[in-house]
Each structure stands twice: as C-alpha cells, then as structure tokens.
Design a protein around this nucleic acid. Structure first.
Lengths: 204, 204
DNA sequence: GTCTATATTGCGATAGAC
DNA sequence: GTCTATCGCAATATAGAC
C-alpha cells in the first residue's frame, strides 16, 4: 500500500505517472504533492525541486536503455537481420518494463526540457547509429534492397516499432472493436512488416 | 515583411511556430506578443485570449485534413492498394502544406488541451477508419496477408508514414551525414516498405 | 522527516486612456 | 486598434517551527 511507502518513493512513482501523462510543464508541484499524498515541501527536501524530481524520473525510465545498449557491443558478429531483430526484441522488452517510456521520449521531443540534450546524446543517437549500421551491413551483404535510403529506412523502423506506444492511451477510442490489443503482438507484426518491406526482392 | 502585416496575422503566424515548438503550456502570452511584435492586449482583442488564439491556429492547421477527408468519400471503387496509396499521397501533401502539422498532433496526444476531443472525433478517428477499411478490403481481396491484425497494421502505417515528421526537428543532429534528406522521398520509401511488408507472399 | 506560512515570480486577462 | 497599468491568481521554493 501507498501508506507503507516513504515519501520519496511515493513522489517518484506519482511523478512518473503524472509527468508521462501531462509533460513537465503540465504538472505543478502542488498536484504532484497532493497526488502522492505528501507535503509540498518534500519535493524540495528529497529532490531539490521540481526539475530534480523530473530528472530522477527520467533516469529511472532510461535504465533499461542503458542495459540494452551495453549488449549491442557484441553485435558485430551478428547478421544484419539478426541485429535488427535484436533491436525489435529490446523494443518489446523496454516497453514491457517501462510502459510510459515512449511518452517521456515524445514529451521531450515535443517540449524539450534542459535534460533533452543529455538523453539525446547518451541514448537516442546511439540507438539510431545501431540501426543505420545494421542497415548498411544488410545492404552490403545483399540482404536488403540496395536502393534504400539508410537514414530514412532507420526512421521508418523506429516509427513503425514505437508509434503504437505513443498513441497507446488513445487506443481504446481509436479501435472500438479491438479486444485483443497486445503490445507484444504489435511489435512482432510491425517488425515482420518492416523486414519483409526492406528485404531484397527476388527479381532484383 | 512583418511590418506590413496586421497584428492579427502576425499573431497567428508567430503562435503557429511557438505553439508547435513548445506546446500550449510551454508558451506564455507575453512571449507570444513579444515574438509577434504586438502588444499583449491584442491577443484578447483579436482572439479572446490565449486559448482562442490556439484554437485559431489549430483550425488553420487542420484545414488540409478536411479537404483530404472529403475526397475519401469517392474511394469505395478503388482497390485496397489504391486507397492506401491515396492515404500516402495525402500524407505527403499535408506535410508539405503544413510542416508543423504533426507537431500539433503530438503535442495534443502528449498534453491534451480542451480541443483534443474535437480534433480527435472530427479527423483522426476518420483517418484511422479509412485505413482499417482499406486493409479489410485488401485482405478480403487477397492482396494483403490474411493473418494481419488490422488495427495494428493501421497503426504501423500511420507510424511509418508520420514518424519522420515528428522527429524532423532532430533530423540534423540524428543524421549527421545526410545532406539529401527530403520529406517527399521519405514518404515514398516508407510507403513502399510498408506495402511490400503487408502484401500477401507468393508462397502463401 | 514533516508541515505551515510566506516570499517571489510569472501567469492570463482587461479596464480605461489615447 | 494600440498601449499602460494593474488585478487576481497560481506557480516554485524555502525558512523556520515542530
């Protein structure tokens, strides 16, 4: 129960939800404190203010990314397709472990906070480089269509794999007849569509 | 030149840029007025306040969507592939006419304003229905793979077609070696990848 | 570690002069 | 149509009591 947790933990958990839903500018420290059932002064006491609390939330959200990136160092030996599959697999893992993760990314892209540059340099650009590296290798090996624009193809992959999670809060409204919606199933199908789409065709 | 435009026009144009970049909560009326080189009271005078100004910006941004949706009524006779191509074509047109359009969509998804429901019911759900309709038809006609989850496949298409424009402001940082990046080229390739990916395979 | 009270700043809006 | 001055309110942050 909430009542058993200390103020610091309650604040971090509540802030994760609220910041994800409304963005940094969309939540006030009063709302945060009230929702966490904690005195407003606790935010400064534990996190040195609203920005410090937000930073703590971000760091917690990005922890699985750091873990995933550390595994890519051994990916050189894998085929291009296996590398892309590795990306797809980690996407599914991260979204399962951190269901709100994409929302933080897109809040930052929409309305960057002072932490955006850090996140970007540390994580996002490395993910992008991993994908473009795999695509380059796949084209060189003859696995993927030779006329792909690599940067665009990398954005296509990121788009098709992550879009579901961006709009997930709207899914129930958007898909009234869908009672089987499942994140895992989405990533599998999206990745298959993408891989079939970039593959070198037989008549080429 | 700006100096020749009236205050109302200058406000609308400035607000379009600033709201797109920082979201509704991220911009103050003082910033708006200063950036537009207009007195702060002009916002209430012309637009009845900050929300009215934002609404005016939204309506202007969504005008091409209304035009595109009106054309889908005659799409019944087209094949499923032609219907999806129609969607892809309109995506390219809208992004060319309104480069900031996607940012408004995603600002609304991230941090909904009171206008979100209106936008959503009026436009987004109809686009989604158009896509799912085309996919259903394509599967029935044997054009697309029979085991597609239609709702997921529709989100995949929306994701692959629009992601580029969401992250476009970051493109230069993300793609340091790319000097040919072009929105039109992106949409063509992304659509081709998607279409090849959902197509019924020969050995099925 | 918690809470109240308050300091300070910035917000959106507008009355009323010009 | 434009501008100044100002109102009322909410924001973040913290000093100091307990």
């Amino acid at each position: 129960m909430d009542l058993e947790k200390d103020s610091q933990t309650k604040l971090l958990e509540t802030a994760t939800t609220l910041f994800a839903q409304k963005g940094f500018n969309g939540v006030s420290v009063r709302q945060l404190a009230e929702a966490a059932n904690v005195n407003i002064a606790a935010i400064s006491y534990y996190f040195r203010g609203k920005e410090g609390l937000y930073q703590a939330v971000l760091e917690e959200q990005f922890a699985p990314i750091a873990a995933a990136l550390s595994q890519t160092k051994t990916a050189n030996k894998l085929s291009a397709t296996e590398q892309l599959s590795m990306y797809a697999k980690h996407i599914a893992i991260i979204h399962r472990q951190r269901p709100l993760f994409t929302r933080f990314i897109f809040n930052e892209v929409s309305n960057p906070t002072p932490f955006f540059d850090l996140i970007f340099k540390k994580y996002i650009s490395k993910i992008f480089q991993f994908i473009t590296g795999a695509l380059t290798k796949g084209i060189a090996d003859g696995d993927f269509a030779a006329d792909l624009n690599i940067n665009h193809a990398a954005l296509s992959l990121a788009g098709i794999m992550n879009f579901y999670f961006i709009v997930n809060p709207l899914a129930k409204t958007i898909m009234p007849l869908d009672n089987t919606s499942d994140a895992e199933e989405y990533t599998v199908q999206a990745y298959r569509i993408y891989l079939d789409g970039i593959r070198r065709k037989k008549d080429e």
